[in-house]
Amino acid sequence: MIDALVKKLKGELVQTHASWVILTEDFAYKIKKPVNFGFLDYSTLEKRRENCLREVELNRRLCPWVYVGVLEVVKVNSEYFLEGEGEVVEYAVKMRRIPEERLMKNLLDKLTEEDLRRLAKHLFDFHQRAERKDEFGRLELMKFNTDENFMQTQKYVGITIEEQDYNFIKSATEEFYKKYAPLFEKRMKEGRIRDGHGDIRLEHVAFLEEGICIFDCIEFNERFRCGDVLNDMCFLSMELEFNGREDLAKVYEEEYKRLSQDPEFDLFLPFFKCYRAYVRGKVESFMLDDPNLSEEEKQKHKERASKLFKLSRKYAESLV
């Protein structure tokens, strides 16, 4: 089916662990794979339909110009079509194709301080109108997330993360919970827990003619998308610093802090950046177990994971 659609659309196929993406000159068509990773379940056609619809709905909040809608993939005899009469065999999210040169990851040497202030305001305004999700601000849930990270990375100790760094980050995280437990409750009551984006990285931000577009949010798992607004916004801070643009990260953070008037901003920011860097280090470590990758590719992921864990350690040091 996928090969037939690629040929029919005269497109290029890109794959992720969870989706097939067919790229044409003007559009991208994302079809979800029938997989179940526990935290992500696309195992049935109905679940794939629901997640396609949710993806469009959620992403239009921060990027209304890109998400066109959900198309049916139909089968007629032995042929496959996007839309039309026939047996519905899949669903595809249709998006405008974003030019590579408009992506933030490719603009790091061109962005101005004003661009970062605009981005901070765009995100702050979104957080202000996003639905409150107080239950995702509970300390117990945040601790579940960090405990999961430490459990899942034990096997990489001595490979991508040094044992002393693993122990230090884990200890600093536990101490933060003990010391500031009442503040998690306070932030919930103040409405700082929202249905956010969950994955604001450099490759998910584009500067378009219509405005700033933050796309590809996490639609498949509320636990990864909903939470403290600082946890949402700081993912980008961490990525900027990881890529050597501490200056841009500082402007972005200072503008968000000014707009939010958050009294715990400076306290929680390094805690959440520590968490985000660790998550990325974990994901890069997982790539070492992918049988489809060459040893050269695995080495690149290993080096990247090690650098991310070192950055997480750096953030953890400011917590103690």
Score class of each variant (00 low, 15 high):
Cys274Gly: 09
Arg194Val: 15
Val14Asn: 01
Gln154Asn: 01
Cys52Asp: 07
Phe168Gln: 02
Asp165Arg: 09
Val320His: 11
Tyr67Gly: 03
Lys273Ile: 10
Glu190Trp: 04
Tyr166Val: 09
Gly38Asp: 11
Met142Gly: 02
Ile214Glu: 11
Phe242Gly: 09
Glu131Thr: 05
Leu230Asp: 05
Phe184Cys: 11
Arg117His: 06
Phe272Val: 04
Gly191Trp: 05
Glu114Val: 11
Asn77Tyr: 13
Leu13Arg: 11
Thr146Met: 11
Ser78Gly: 07
Thr24Pro: 09
Glu162Lys: 13
Glu222Trp: 00
Met1His: 09
Tyr166Asp: 06
Glu113Cys: 10
Glu203Ile: 08
Ser285His: 08
Gln152Arg: 13
Glu162Gly: 01
Lys110Val: 03
Pro34Lys: 05
Pro182Glu: 05
Val70Met: 11
Asp115Ile: 13
Glu85Asp: 13
Ala277Gln: 11
Asn145Trp: 09
Glu163Leu: 12
Gly86Val: 07
Glu295Trp: 02
Lys94Arg: 15
Glu297Met: 08
Glu140Trp: 00
Ser294Tyr: 01
Glu219Arg: 07
Ile214Leu: 14
Asp199Asn: 15
Glu297His: 06
Phe207Ala: 07
Ala28Ile: 15
Ile193His: 07
Ala181His: 10
Phe37Tyr: 14
Leu123Ile: 15
Arg132Asp: 07
Phe268Cys: 04
Asp115Tyr: 09
Glu209Ala: 13
Ile193Asn: 03
Phe309His: 14
Glu83Pro: 04
Arg54Cys: 06
Lys105Trp: 01
Lys121Thr: 12
Arg48Gly: 07
Val279Cys: 08
Glu131Gln: 09
Met1Ser: 10
Leu53Ala: 06
Gln299Pro: 00
Glu135Phe: 01
Asn77Lys: 15
Val229Gln: 02
Phe126Ser: 07
Glu175Asn: 13
Arg223Met: 06
Leu230Thr: 02
Asp115Pro: 13
Lys155Trp: 08
Glu135Leu: 02
Tyr91Leu: 08
Glu239Met: 12
Leu259Thr: 12
Tyr29Met: 12
Met188Thr: 01
Leu123Ser: 10
Glu296His: 00
Arg60Gly: 07
Ala206Met: 14
Tyr275Val: 12
Pro291Gln: 02
Pro182Met: 05
Glu253Asp: 12
Leu103Pro: 05
